[in-house]
Computed example of a mutant assay.
Amino acid sequence: MFYRAIALSLALLIGIGTIIPLATESVEAGKHRKKRYHKKKYRKYSKAWWRQYRAKQKRKRALMARKRALRLRQLRLARLRAKKKSVNTPAVAAKPSQPKPAMPSLLPTGAPAPEGWAPAQNSGSEVQFSVDGGRGTASISVVGPAMGETIDTGRNRTVGGVPVSSLRREVINRMIRENGWVVNDYQKEVGKKKVYVVVAQSQGPGGKINSRMFYFTEVEGRIFSVATNTSVDSAERIAEESEKVINSLQARPRPAQQAAIREE
């Protein structure tokens, strides 16, 4: 009887000792359940809605500022690493550049240009040259198609059917844009063909006066223009060279089609 009482007491203690920890863990686990937060919804454009909206925008701006700061830091670190790499890399001796061969000066006809006419950067509407040792310019372009015969007498003078008054007006408009003025115009014979010439001047850097010459002639159904811009001292020599260019255009008309019609 005594031993039975002792055995029952021990079994009871062991059972109580097992149940208590399990109950404690269950209670603690229940206390730490994850709470679900529900976003409050406010009536749109109410005071509470605007308060929530401003807070959201503030968080968004703060996030963007942190991203920008991080990106800036990354760029600075990349530049610093590149700078250190360039300092540590031994410099390689550059190979001496070979002088580029001079480009041949050719007219649109394929004939050689006058001496001193160096090729310049061309555009789709004209062929350009540097003249007078780089102190002046010259250009060759196609004004447009011829409309008839050249007339050099009377009031209705024309070049290839185009009235000289239209050609003169074109030069006047250009001089207005380039701070210049027309001095004279006349027709003369160059290479057994009548050429319309407009003499103008413009003001260069430092108030220096430049000589401007415009030649218009008809070649194979097109009106060609040769324009020069040089100093007054070299105007006469450049005029003689320009007439040589016109002779070349009249002598070999087929390759002259390389010059495109000037875009208005």
Rank of each mutant, 00 (worst) to 15 (best):
S123C: 04
R43M: 07
E115T: 06
A94H: 14
A120N: 06
R71V: 14
K39A: 14
L72W: 12
A118M: 11
T24P: 01
Q52D: 15
R51P: 01
K31M: 09
K95L: 15
P119D: 04
P90L: 03
P101Y: 03
L63E: 11
G30H: 04
A93E: 13
R36I: 14
A48G: 03
N122D: 15
P21N: 02
A23Y: 08
E28G: 08
G30C: 03
L75A: 13
K39M: 13
A62P: 02
I16M: 14
L107R: 00
K39E: 15
R79Y: 13
L63V: 05
T18I: 08
P99V: 07
S105G: 04
P101R: 10
P108L: 00
A65H: 03
T24N: 07
L75M: 07
L106K: 07
Y37E: 10
P112D: 04
L70K: 06
P99M: 01
K58W: 13
R73Q: 04
T18N: 05
K44C: 07
T89D: 10
K39I: 13
L80W: 14
Y37V: 12
Q57M: 12
N122E: 04
R76M: 12
S86F: 10
A118D: 08
K31A: 06
M103K: 05
A69N: 11
Q98D: 03
V92E: 08
R33S: 13
P99H: 02
W117I: 01
A102S: 09
P112S: 10
N88I: 05
S26P: 03
T89K: 10
R51I: 13
R76S: 08
L13T: 12
G15K: 03
A94G: 04
R68C: 03
P90M: 01
I20E: 08
R43W: 06
K35P: 01
R66W: 02
E28M: 15
P112W: 06
K100S: 11
K85Q: 07
Q98G: 05
L75C: 13
R68D: 14
R36E: 09
A102G: 09
R76N: 15
K84C: 04
K67M: 07
A91C: 04
A48N: 06
A120F: 04
A93C: 07
V92Y: 02
G15S: 11
Y45P: 00
W117R: 01
K41Q: 01
S105H: 03
K85H: 14
R43G: 08
S105N: 02
K31H: 06
R51Y: 12
R61A: 12
P112T: 07
A93I: 09
H38S: 07
K31W: 15
S86H: 11
P108K: 01
